[in-house]
Amino acid sequence: MSDPIDLVFSASGPEVIFENFGDEMVVANLASGFFYSLDGSGADIWNALVAGHTGRQFIAASRADAEGAAEIARFIAELRSEGLLAEAAHPAKPDPVSVAAFARPSMQKFDDLQGLLLVDPIHEASPAGWPFVQAPGESHG
């Protein structure tokens, strides 16, 4: 079985879309409704992976030390466990990986949509109407 940092990935489907705002990378999983903000070298790792590079190529390009390499592997595992990456059938791209100075990658997960999906439109909507949720202490009477 291949080491995950040697695998080639792509975004796991058309439901996963990403946007680079310059100072932050946002990945949305439209199937699950979760949004992710990628921090540190997270955006560079994401860009490298969806461009067809492997985690090992990224580690080499970033000159991360052993601890950094472990962080990169952990981050890739997290992207996979959130359903954002799927293994691709094509070989890794041989061209150089573009990478800024290494910073510990992390992600912030936003679950706003999940909160709204769970609103009961009859009993839990606020007086402002569905899909707004009652604030604490607010009641329907």
Partner: peptide, 29 residues
């Protein structure tokens, strides 16, 4: 962070006006 604003605004768009999630998210971005 734009991601926080995007997540909050997109959630309401998706729920209050279901459908066409990807193009609407692209517009919001």
């Amino acid at each position: 962070r734009r991601s926080k604003v995007l997540a909050a605004m997109a959630a309401n768009i998706f729920i209050a006006t279901p459908g066409a999630r990807e193009p609407r998210l692209r517009k919001l971005s």
